[in-house]
Simulated scan of single mutants.
Amino acid sequence: MTRDTAVQELLDGALDGSGVVLEEVVVTPAGRRRVVRVVVDRALEATGDVTETVESLSLDEIAATTRTIGDVLDESDVLGEQPYTLEVTSPGVSRPLTTPSHFQRNVGRLVVLALTGAEPVTGRITRAGTDDLTISVPAVKKVPARDETHAYAAIDRADVQVEFSRKDTQDTQDTADPADTPDADDADASGDKEN
């Protein structure tokens, strides 16, 4: 068993039932220390089709998860005696969508799908299931708006598009205080740990 696999199994157990799931663990050398980079995301409550937007992890949830992970690593000898720096983050919008759970967590977001043997298509995810997803494609020139369903197997690459303002959320953003709703897509908490 590799060190990364051992760390992943340890952290999977520590986060079980917390509402947070482990996406990735990478341990890399950095001089006399190591960097332990942990990517976490919100656990999906629904199984099958997801049609509602899944809320991103908040900064408070990332901080609490960082404390949990740090405590578990400190109590374990999985990393040995060498000091390490812990970085806990949630996936950013730059991460390609590669698994059904990635699509399910991004319902409501605008994506570009590179399709096998077809032109890329841009649309908003309205439903994501275990085998396929449905996107709402806006009208372009003489082509009317439409819904398209694509099997994950037919998607070569999928990327979330960054939107600075959306028409359907503009009214709620105008009345909400931006300080009350931090965007945690690229939330990050770090800390140095000495074993």
Rank of each mutant, 00 (worst) to 15 (best):
T2D: 15
D4W: 06
T5C: 03
T5D: 15
A6S: 12
Q8L: 08
E9P: 02
D12G: 00
G13N: 11
A14P: 10
A14H: 03
D16M: 01
G17K: 00
S18M: 01
S18Y: 02
V21E: 14
V21Y: 03
L22Q: 02
E23A: 09
V26N: 15
V27T: 14
V27D: 12
V27W: 08
T28G: 02
T28F: 04
P29K: 14
P29Y: 04
G31L: 07
R32T: 07
R33Y: 04
R34S: 08
V35C: 06
V35W: 14
R37D: 14
V39T: 11
V39G: 05
V40E: 02
D41E: 09
D41I: 02
E45H: 15
E45V: 09
D49Q: 14
E52M: 11
S56I: 07
S56L: 15
D60W: 00
D60N: 00
I62G: 08
A63Y: 00
A63S: 15
A64W: 00
T65P: 10
I69R: 04
I69L: 09
G70H: 05
G70E: 07
G70R: 14
V72L: 04
L73K: 06
D74V: 12
S76G: 04
D77M: 06
V78M: 09
L79A: 04
G80A: 05
G80N: 11
Q82R: 15
T85H: 11
S90L: 03
S90R: 02
P91C: 10
V93A: 15
S94W: 00
S94N: 09
R95H: 08
R95M: 06
P96S: 13
P96Q: 05
P96Y: 10
P96R: 11
T98S: 15
T99C: 14
S101G: 13
Q104N: 09
N106F: 01
V107K: 11
R109G: 12
A114P: 00
L115S: 07
A118I: 01
P120W: 07
T122N: 03
G123K: 08
R124S: 13
R127F: 05
A128Q: 07
A128I: 04
G129S: 12
I135W: 07
P138S: 07
K142T: 14
A145G: 10
D147F: 04
D147H: 13
H150N: 14
Y152T: 08
A154N: 15
D156S: 15
V162R: 07
V162T: 09
E163V: 01
R166Q: 08
R166V: 08
R166G: 04
D168W: 01
T169F: 00
Q170A: 13
Q170L: 03
D171F: 03
T172H: 01
T172F: 00
T175S: 02
D180Y: 00
T181Q: 10
D183A: 15
A184S: 13
D185L: 12
D185F: 11
D186V: 03
D188F: 14
A189L: 08
G191N: 01
G191T: 01
G191D: 01
D192K: 05
E194D: 10
N195R: 14
